[in-house]
Amino acid sequence: MSIRPDGRPHVTPLPTVGDAGALHFCPGAGEQKAKNLYRNPNCAITTGTADADAGLDVVVEGTATRVTDPDRPTTLAALWKSRHNWDLHSADGAFTGDEGNEALVFAVTPAKVLAFGQGEPYSQTRYRFA
């Protein structure tokens, strides 16, 4: 979730990869999410299960920063390939897909994580990071 200029939330599903203590995602360079994050980098990432009786729902809150190290996207592209079977190519600190579309890479280091255990016994846990 990111914040629109008028304060309304903007939520879209985006696969992430975790590495080096951060979650990484890659919205298109011209997409609303990237525009929102440039204006206000505060965001939340959620994941969960459709099963109400098993699994874990997780919310990660933090600040998104653009990954600008030119070598980092190469490492992250390999992770996206192994975890999501995406073919991303590193170019100038961003990704390009097979169609040539540019995607920016952002990292969110968790500031707070909420975890909700599904099924008996139901649970809720909060983690804060310094």
Rank of each mutant, 00 (worst) to 15 (best):
A130Q: 10
G28V: 05
N85G: 14
Y122V: 14
H24I: 06
G93S: 09
F106H: 01
P70M: 09
L88N: 01
N101R: 14
A111G: 07
I3G: 01
A107F: 01
E120D: 13
G100Q: 07
D71S: 12
A29V: 15
A111H: 03
G7R: 04
A115Y: 03
K33L: 04
S2F: 00
V60H: 03
H84Y: 05
A54W: 10
G119A: 06
A50G: 14
G28M: 08
L79Y: 04
P15C: 15
D6H: 08
D92E: 14
W86K: 10
Y38P: 00
G7H: 06
D57R: 10
N40Q: 09
P13L: 13
T68A: 11
E102C: 08
W86Q: 12
V67F: 01
G30I: 09
T65P: 00
R72L: 10
H24F: 15
H84R: 07
L79R: 11
P27M: 01
S2L: 01
V60G: 02
T47A: 12
A107S: 10
V11G: 07
G97I: 05
E99C: 09
V105Q: 02
D51L: 09
A34C: 07
W86E: 12
T75W: 09
C26D: 06
D69C: 10
A52S: 13
G7Q: 05
L56M: 13
H24S: 06
A77S: 09
R8A: 15
T65C: 04
G21C: 08
E31S: 15
G100S: 07
P70K: 13
P110K: 00
E120P: 09
N42M: 05
A29Y: 07
H10F: 14
A44G: 10
K112D: 06
G28I: 03
E99S: 15
Q124G: 15
T63I: 07
G7F: 06
N36R: 04
D87E: 13
A34L: 02
T75K: 12
A94Y: 02
N36G: 06
A44Y: 03
T65H: 07
A54K: 11
P9D: 11
L79V: 04
A130D: 14
C26H: 12
I3C: 09
D57Q: 11
V60Y: 02
L88A: 06
D92W: 05
G55M: 04
P70V: 13
N36I: 04
T96F: 03
A64W: 00
F25D: 02
Q118I: 05
A52N: 10
N85V: 10
P110H: 00
L23I: 04
L76F: 08
P73W: 03
F129T: 02
L23P: 01
V60S: 02
F25R: 02
S2D: 01
Y127T: 09
H84V: 05
P5A: 10
Y122F: 15
Y38T: 10
G62W: 00
P13M: 11
A52C: 07
K35Y: 04
F116W: 13
R66H: 08
G62C: 02
L14I: 11
L79P: 02
V105G: 04
